[in-house]
């Protein structure tokens, strides 16, 4: 069953068409990664889904058509995390920031406190609760922005390069946390990125280039189209690129993501 559906989307900035008759549907409970180079239309699509740009087409989210009347109801169930959290914070401490949305919805202080405890520990920002969000480093800001989105227990989580400033070791932990949300709490995740390292965690990978879906499928299927990927300038995970290059010399036969297994394949 589809949780999100875009049909016949056409959108342009002045004379420049970003999407012309674009279609996409996302299955309930799935994790879909939409990847593409700069200028592919990723951010425009996120803005359209957030209702920040107006389209004249049919976008359905959670069985409701995205229009002025339904927008607020849809936004209650869809969490957005954007790439640059600097434009996002409204409060003086991280604690207030996390409480902000639930307070506005009239939640009881006890519930809010419990929720903050749980999520801040999960994302390891419990030490930052009394800091001013603007004093944090880029990666910390992004973690707080993600925590704010999770506070509302969204049914869909839309991430627009949301882990960009988080360094690699921590990124893995966060992706695992998100995987847990996806599998156990049935949160549908739609993530937009140009870094395919993150795509390993998703069920489906959609490659977008100039407003058109170039490849759509599971992780291995997409990476087998390596020429297309390289041509449109996408950053392929290191191990995949290495195995692609070694395969050219017949040193290995298949693409391997795990570094240890890759070494064993070469020196077998």
């Amino acid at each position: 069953m589809d949780i999100l559906n875009i049909s016949n989307l056409t959108f342009r900035y002045k004379n420049k068409f970003i999407f012309d008759n674009f279609n996409l549907s996302v299955e309930r409970g799935s994790w879909t990664t939409i990847a593409g180079p700069n200028g592919a239309g990723k951010t425009t699509l996120v803005k359209l889904l957030a209702g920040l740009e107006k389209s004249y087409s049919n976008i359905t989210i959670l069985d409701k058509t995205l229009n002025k009347k339904n927008l607020l109801n849809i936004r209650k169930e869809v969490g957005f995390v954007f790439d640059n959290p600097d434009n996002f914070f409204a409060c003086e401490t991280v604690l207030d920031e996390l409480a902000f949305s639930l307070e506005n919805l009239g939640e009881s202080p006890k519930t809010i406190k419990k929720k903050i405890d749980e999520i801040s520990k999960l994302l390891k920002i419990d030490g930052l609760l009394n800091e001013n969000p603007y004093d944090l480093s880029g990666g910390e800001k992004q973690k707080v922005a993600l925590a704010c989105a999770l506070m509302l227990e969204p049914r869909i989580l839309i991430l627009d390069d949301a882990l960009l400033m988080i360094d690699i070791n921590e990124k893995k932990q966060i992706l695992n946390i998100l995987k847990d949300y996806n599998k156990n709490k049935k949160v549908t995740i739609l993530s937009f990125t140009h870094n395919l390292d993150e795509a390993i965690y998703s069920d489906r990978l959609v490659i977008l280039n100039r407003g058109i879906i170039t490849i759509d499928g599971s992780f291995p299927k997409v990476f087998s189209e390596e020429m297309v990927m390289r041509k449109i300038g996408l950053e392929v995970p290191f191990e995949i690129e290495l195995s692609q290059k070694l395969r050219v010399y017949n040193i290995i036969d298949e693409l391997e993501l795990d570094p240890e297994r890759l070494v064993s394949l070469i020196w077998k």
Partner: peptide, 12 residues
Amino acid sequence: DEPTIGLDNNSK
């Protein structure tokens, strides 16, 4: 400060 952040492979 982070000159390559947000850039795709070719731009990078």
